[in-house]
Amino acid sequence: MEKTIKKFWPVFVIPTFAAFCIGFIWPFLQGLYLSFCRFTTINKATWTGVQNYLFTFTDSSFLHAFWFTALFTIVSTVCINLAAFAIALALTRNIKGTNIFRSVFFMPNLIGGIVLGYIWNILLNCVLTLLGKPLLSLHAPYGFIGLVILMCWQQIGYMMIIYIAGIQSIPTDYLEAARIDGASERQILWKIKIPNVMPSITICLFLSLTNGFKLFDQNLALTGGDPSHSTEMLALNIYNTFYARSGPQWKGYGQAKAVLFCILVIVISLVQLRATRSKEVQQ
């Protein structure tokens, strides 16, 4: 068996590796190169050096978008994970109809972001009209809350499934032993369940952090960055840099922002992975 694997490994590795190179590494390198250029289309680029990056650092809208995105990511990550974990706990207690609940909670995740954005835009605007409050695209705090609600609604079900899998894989002897020793439900939760689902927490935090940072469709559809760019997140800011003004220099600026954005997301997720990995326990 091992011999055959040694002999045939290229058959298995090369197609995937080639796809990875064509679909990821090459475009990434090309993108990196373009961030130092002025261009309209990618075949015709003129090298301009670090000028694009210098502009990016002086662009206040990019900085604002960064802080807005960071705030959004923190709030949404906390909300999504708390709610998803709570629901997962509730749905692993052998209540009747658990499977129906699980499917229903998971369903919002099957709808695409842009569609959800427009649906929630209509819903929330109707509610705000009834309350006599300014609509989503007029009042940045409502836009922010709207985005958080939308993301929670979409993501909680998905994270819940991961948590349920984590909770179900906790060996029942641990729980039984704890109960026999007279541990309270709270103690079981904190001392046994949470340490044992740490791998799931790592994954869910990673997913919700990166989803929050990379959010684009929902932002575009729900508020479009209004009022006056105050609810514009990083990805939308990059998109607007790219398309809202004509001239080859703007494509370069947008590209430089995109590269910085990519590095930022990688750094943040590495830090988060390291932090939560260290809390994982061996079963």
Binding site: P134, L135, S137, L138, P227, S228, N240, A244, S246
Partner: peptide
């Protein structure tokens, strides 16, 4: 001058119409 100009004018008009600007 740009799409951005139109968008910014649009946001300002919207806010004015709603009374928030």
């Amino acid at each position: 001058p740009s799409e951005q100009w139109k968008n910014d004018l649009g946001s300002a008009l919207t806010a004015y119409a709603a009374g928030t600007g």
